[in-house]
Nucleic acid binder design. Structure first.
Length: 603
RNA sequence: GCCGGGAUAGUUCAAUGGUAGAACGUCUUGCUCGUAACAAGAAGGUUGGGGGUUCGAUUCCCCCUCCCGGCUCCA
């Protein structure tokens, strides 16, 4: 975001707060930062509000803008500031933090508390005034409201948000707005949102009969319909073939395991409340497996004795279950289970880690190259935050962490991969490289992950004998190239607006006999195509040809093969390709060669 | 879980303090069709569930369930 736009959005946040105080003078103000597409401001209202307040606030903000108000910054002492913000408890809390720590940033404050960082001494704070409204603010504003185009912003929604993101603190009401420099940009943004409403994977999933969710099964527990299962199956076997080519061995592990396993692996300590318990009538306590790692580690112990057995690359389309709060499930993206992971654990010596990590990236690029439709991804280097509120999460010694992070950085440098750092995003056992994309709403999601584990081998006592007959712990790479298959279907649907590539289409095409007389010919074609393994159906119902074509369009079916008198006589088919339209009569061989080229999974 | 908004036919949506209507879909019948909607007819609703106010509630109020947008979390 450029500075000008940032200043514009930040200034709008001030105007929003100012407008809120005009409607509810007793409202308490939280903070009002900018976002990727606009801004928000958190309030504790003294009156009951609903969505109708948005248009009222917009009107007031527009009036303020038209008054050509100046944004005036000023430095004041803490004493003065406290007087100004009397009656605004959240602002006073921020002032206290500024005085004590020189910052309001939660993570930084934790650092200072842990004495990892020195507090900045500041004697004065900046405040910004616009007409009669004053806000505590480090700055970054336009000079005058006349720089704002009143038609290029919009208040979009009301939501709850905890003060400072802490669920133990009061919940404030957050008002979101979007803002741009021009009205055209705003219109484009709103249009994009409309598209997202229409083409998000839940809507497409229902329309194209990919999956369903039943309240009787439960929230976050989607059922794949026949078409969804076909897509999943294609992806699973495609990945298996690729992975076997890269030297992986597939295994299979049960959905339950005894509590002892997770005690030993260390997961129980951190994630007990995020695992489903299963109680055996005989008194044993199981958990539905929330990850495949410990199971694979046991297989390692069975198979590996010496350095000569390394690397061991175990893979599994393992199905896991994770506790999600009821309000947090989302279509196929965020589920309780089954999450069918494209999971693998690579056990390697320290010396070979770089090599193995690099091979995982080769596989990743090969796969996403084949997939074509998932573009615009970037990589995040997820590092620990040894000073933040979760610092106790990260185990092992610092030097190993640094060593592992260095290896990721080095490989990425050699492969010309740009890294965006993500401090505090690491796993408890090591740093990771995450591949990120934006979903259709523009929200960031992790689609693939490659993680280095420097901790669990020691904890689970995984060993091998090196060439000096000495016991060593291996390093583990945990990796998921497609993440979870179910979620990946969601990403695919959104990335393609439902028009999946031919090889991933559950129904690749339909055959339309014009009259009943042509059904026999259609059946012959169908059997032929099926013998090649392609997925076709005959649609011979009472509907007119145009109607059947319309239905095929609605279902986003890639190929339509039409046969009437002409085609039967010439032993041809009329081909219609989605988005290309009628291509006229084609020889059967041409259609089969088209399918051979694009209708099979890339190998 | 928390904050806000919702729930009307299978679907998308309309209407109303006096007991509900359209389109598409479904079914039946007729039509044998050449590249994005063949015609006619019929069925289909305890207006999410429960309670309250009222002569009367689908409409107003309360509780519950579920859905949506956020917050939080995501090994």
């Amino acid at each position: 975001m450029n500075k000008k736009l940032e200043n514009l959005r930040h200034s709008l946040a001030h105007l929003l707060a100012s407008a809120v105080l005009k409607i509810d003078p007793k409202a308490k103000l939280g903070i009002g930062p900018t976002t990727d597409d606009g801004f928000y401001y958190d309030f504790l209202f003294s009156i009951k509000i609903d969505e109708t307040i948005l248009s009222k606030l917009e009107e007031i903000m527009k009036d303020l803008i038209k008054k050509n108000l100046k944004f005036v910054g000023k430095k004041v002492s803490f004493q003065e500031a406290k007087k100004i913000f009397k009656g605004q408890p959240f602002k006073l809390e921020l002032l206290d933090d500024l005085k004590k720590y020189g910052t309001t940033d939660f993570n930084e404050i934790q650092l200072i508390k842990a004495k990892k960082k020195k507090a900045k001494k500041i004697s004065k704070v900046t405040i910004y005034q616009t007409a009669d409204f004053i806000d505590l603010c480090r700055g970054g504003h336009i000079k005058n409201t006349k720089e704002i185009n009143p038609e290029a912003f919009k208040l979009t929604r009301i939501a709850g948000a905890y003060w400072r993101g802490d669920e133990k603190r009061p919940m404030l009401t957050r008002i979101y707005g979007v803002a741009f420099e021009t009205q055209k940009e705003l219109d484009e943004y709103l249009q994009k949102q409309e598209m997202a409403e229409k083409y998000n994977h839940r809507v497409l999933g229902e329309k194209l009969k990919i999956f369903m969710i039943s309240p009787l099964v439960g929230k976050g527990l989607p059922l794949l319909l026949p078409k969804g299962e076909i897509i999943k199956n294609i992806l699973v076997s495609y990945m298996r073939k690729k992975e076997e080519k890269f030297g992986y061995q597939y295994v299979s592990s049960p959905h339950l395991a005894l509590d002892k396993l997770y005690e030993k692996s260390g997961h129980l300590k951190f994630y007990e409340n995020e695992m489903y318990k299963v109680l055996d009538p005989q008194g044993e306590r199981f958990f539905l497996k929330p990850m495949n790692c410990p199971h694979h580690h046991l297989i390692y112990q069975e198979l590996v004795k010496s350095y000569k057995d390394l690397p061991l690359r175990l893979a599994e389309a393992g199905q896991v279950y994770r506790v999600e709060k009821s309000g947090e499930t989302y279509g196929l993206m965020r589920v309780r289970g089954p999450i069918t992971q494209n999971d693998s654990h690579i056990y390697t010596s320290k010396d070979n880690l770089e090599d193995e990590f690099s091979r995982v990236l080769d596989l990743l690029f090969e796969v996403y190259n084949d997939l074509e439709v998932i573009k615009n991804y970037w990589f995040r280097l997820s590092l620990p935050d040894f000073s933040g509120k979760n610092k106790s999460k990260y185990g092992g010694d610092l030097k190993l962490w640094q060593w592992a992070s260095r290896i990721i950085k080095k490989i990425c440098l050699s492969k010309k991969i740009n890294l965006v750092p993500g401090v505090g995003e690491a796993a408890f056992y090591g740093p990771k490289l995450d591949m990120q994309i934006k979903n259709i709403y523009g929200k960031e999601e992790t689609v693939a992950t490659i993680q280095i584990d420097i901790l669990v081998p020691k904890r689970m006592n995984l060993v091998y004998l090196d060439n000096k007959n000495k016991n060593q712990h291996p390093i583990i790479i945990h990796r998921a190239i497609l993440g979870s298959y179910e979620r990946f279907i969601g990403f695919l649907l959104e990335a393609t607006f439902g028009d999946l590539p031919l090889w991933l289409s559950p129904l690749q095409g339909i055959i339309l006999p014009i009259k009943k007389d042509h059904l026999n010919y259609a059946l012959k074609i169908l059997n032929l195509l099926k013998s090649y393994g392609f997925r076709f159906e005959i649609w011979m119902n009472e509907e007119s040809l145009s109607k059947r074509i319309l239905l095929a369009e609605e279902q986003k079916i890639p190929l339509v093969l039409i046969c009437g008198d002409k085609e039967v006589k010439n032993k041809t088919l009329s081909l219609r390709i989605r988005k290309k339209g009628d291509l006229g009569e084609k020889k059967l061989e041409d259609i089969i060669s088209l399918l051979n080229e694009k209708g099979n999974p890339p190998s």
